[in-house]
Write a protein that binds this DNA or RNA. Structure first.
Lengths: 261, 261
DNA sequence: TCTTGCGTTCGAATATGCCGAACGCAAGAC
DNA sequence: GTCTTGCGTTCGGCATATTCGAACGCAAGA
């Protein structure tokens, strides 16, 4: 593990929705490095446009980040088709939909579509992260990943309890994932947020590997009324997406080793 | 300039739409570094999820890139309002619209909206780059930037001639930018692509600084017929966006120094 | 089975990033 | 106006993390 790479990511990770701007001093204090080092580091990153300098010693994320992410998205073939179908669906069903991929034990939300008059938001923007063990898409993604890896990672990272319904026991999770594999889809019964239920289904590439998952997120009362319809709907959508994938479509397989440090 | 940061960006920059996957060997040969060094570098980046390992020594861009870019986008306040207005406009006018910001002398396309039955594509995806001196949004952005910087950079980078109408003379460009400032908007008369015209207008923050630009891209024949309408339309849209910006809305000012190496 | 080509591991040489101190600058106190 | 304070940047010697050639292990193909 190269130390500088580690420091680069530590700096990049500082920037968030709450703190989109950082000065050299703040960053140095937060990270616990001497400010001279941080100054050089940030200046270098800005020179390469990974950061953007706004006034003396103040920085934001730079546009090169955005470009890189677009390259990433454009080369994730499954996303294009998924989006087309999901747009259809949202227009018709008027419910929020998400598309997510698995990265470690975190579900990365790649798309978030909602009917035009915004209702309520679960994950407020595509690109957010949620522990995979509690959400619908997350559990579906976990269900089709090697259990040894998952369990090792979860043991290491812990399983935060977001609501009373969140699964926090490894054995129980294993059984839940087994159920998901049997049925071919998964529920989230207010495990992320009270009053919000969800049904999720896997998207498969041409070889049958699960590469992503989509979901409906619906207020609990409405979900109960029309559970079967939502389930059928999401399954059909996932199948349409899977079937429409180009022959050579490949997932962007996730690294399964554990993180250093 | 920290060397490792430079190497990190060199590696990240390898990944493109044409070559979304790289092996250690290919990367090492392309960059001219020993493969052992590149191997360690890429392994480190993958460990921090800036890259994603797909099989022995093969890598893609990692999802952390995507997350970082979402943070960037969400904290660029002008984008949210711009998108709302642009969606309106596209629905009504049924023409392609772009939103771009300036990064150095390149226009980075942050949004691209098109009416539902896709017509023709100029910039195929948000996040693309085009030399600023030839496109409508590009010229508008240049018009409101310090000329000393622009001209120095353009001299250094050159001014590619995309069509016979592309401006490739510095003095002529300076006069064109002057015209744009006088009028308050700019045209692209088939300077990027023959048969495609464009009218662009600047978006200003509360202090009057130009922070972005939007444009209509329209087939030449249709543009000629309704030039004035398009111009008025885009101006009004730009003003609506500017006016709707939150009080504290700030651009993400671009670094104006030249790049090392 | 042998060969070839790949990615990874290893260890010693050294160039590189690190950090404390000094500097320059600007804002605010007195 | 001057002094003080706090900031970011610059500098240079030191120590250590990075580098790179060589050796290794592995898998695919001859």
């Amino acid at each position: 593990m190269l130390q500088t790479v580690s420091k680069v990511t530590q700096v990049l990770d500082l920037f968030s929705l709450e703190n989109p701007e950082w000065s050299v001093g703040e960053a140095a204090r937060t990270l616990g490095y001497p400010k001279s080092s941080v100054s050089e580091l940030m200046a270098s990153l800005a020179n390469r446009r990974l950061l953007c300098r706004i006034g003396k010693g103040r920085y934001r994320l730079g546009w090169r980040i955005f470009e890189l992410s677009q390259t990433l998205l454009q080369t994730a073939e499954f996303r294009v088709e998924a989006r087309r179908v999901m747009e259809d669906m949202v227009g018709q069903w008027r419910e929020i939909m998400h598309l997510a991929v698995l990265d470690g034990v975190q579900a990365v939300y790649v798309e978030k579509l909602q009917p035009t008059p915004a209702v309520k938001i679960l994950v407020s923007w595509a690109g957010a992260r949620l522990p995979a063990h509690c959400s619908g898409v997350g559990k579906v993604l976990l269900a089709y990943s090697p259990w040894e890896n998952i369990s090792a990672n979860l043991r290491h990272m812990g399983m935060p309890k977001l609501t009373p319904h969140t699964i926090t026991d490894l054995d129980e999770l294993e059984r839940e994932l087994e159920r998901i594999r049997e049925r071919g889809y998964g529920y989230d019964i207010e495990e992320v947020s009270i009053g919000l239920r969800c049904v999720a289904a896997p998207i498969r590439d041409c070889e049958g590997n699960v590469i992503a998952a989509i979901s409906f997120s619906v207020p609990a009362f409405r979900f109960k009324e029309r559970e079967e319809e939502f389930t059928e709907g999401i399954l059909k959508a996932a199948q349409r997406i899977s079937a429409a994938l180009p022959k050579h479509a490949r997932s962007l397989p996730r690294e399964l080793t554990t993180l250093h440090r």
